[in-house]
Design a binder for these strands. Sequence first.
DNA 1: ACTATTCTTGGTACCAGGTACTAATTTTTT
DNA 2: AAAAAATTAGTACCTGGTACCAAGAATAGT
Lengths: 192, 192
Amino acid sequence: MAKCSINKNTRQHQLSRYLNEDPFLTDDDLSRIFGVSIQTIRLDRFDLHIPELRERLKNVARGGNRQLRTMDGGELVGDLVDLDIGNSGISILPVTPAMTLNKTSVARGHHIFAQANSLAVAVIDAGAALTGSARVSYKRPVYCGEKILAKAVIKIKKGNKYMVKVTSEVKDEIVFKGKFLVFALQEEGVSQ
Amino acid sequence: MAKCSINKNTRQHQLSRYLNEDPFLTDDDLSRIFGVSIQTIRLDRFDLHIPELRERLKNVARGGNRQLRTMDGGELVGDLVDLDIGNSGISILPVTPAMTLNKTSVARGHHIFAQANSLAVAVIDAGAALTGSARVSYKRPVYCGEKILAKAVIKIKKGNKYMVKVTSEVKDEIVFKGKFLVFALQEEGVSQ
DNA sequence: ACTATTCTTGGTACCAGGTACTAATTTTTT
DNA sequence: AAAAAATTAGTACCTGGTACCAAGAATAGT
């Protein structure tokens, strides 16, 4: 029972590792990988208390679901790549399938707006800022997979009011332009 | 075809929202929810290019981990409470802590924009529509816990171009106004 | 060498949640 | 009343399994 047992144990060990790295593997995939029958794989999974593919995917999907909800991590939509507070800022937003319309692979407008708006607010030198009004135009559709580079520049400052211009581009082609009137909130929590 | 078309369209809209919120729903679940046959649900999914449960879970499992949703994910931001396609629509968006600025409990502008924009697009009688430009203004801050009621009305229609006015209120007080110029995409699936 | 035990494999019936297709029926429009 | 659109019904088939049973192969203990 030694030799065989070792084989079995190592196989189960590896199987466990394989599935940890790639929960998408079917029993059929695994039977090919290890060169054993599909039944053997099933018995292995049973021994290791590893559920079937669909259950595994459900678990992964559920686990991911919980983290969702909160929205892009922070205050900003997109990744900040440059920020000169009080003057200008640049952010990049990769367009994922989740941002597109169902039927097409075109990014929905409010995502592009969100990137621009949050960047406009971020460049303001204040603890918090609010958008008062905006005038925006979409120059061409943005497709799934493209990366939107937004540049915000403060054009006018009057007291706690700012006029910020944002231009969004994909590969040097302008896809969106917006003018944002933003108010700085100077009260309470300017904090850190 | 009008009345029926509306029913079908609203159902498909809601179906899309349901699945965006909970990709774990089976066709059977959905057929119970909407009180239609399972075949109708399948046809709806087909129209909307929504893949089957397992594919959806694979997608969530694959992408869900990292490429979170930037915003609420659904076709529509907020809950659709009334939709007269080609004319008007109403949606409600409860403001959650996740939508507010760090220090204050004020909703960030792009969420309010997103509700209005997605509603403006939803009232268009076409398979898909894109925002061309928008002019918006924020009348007063909206606080966490409040519910934003957005009303969209199509004002002008010229070919595939629409002008949609959206007014958002909290308890009869106007908090946001927007004018959206929206283009219908007439290709393929303008649905029936 | 022979048996007992473990390991592996094969086969069958069954299930969920579908796809793909055809046809009939109901509803709505004209 | 006829035509078109929407819905429902039904069938065959698919994947990736479960659950179970029986047969065959490998190995250990004596």
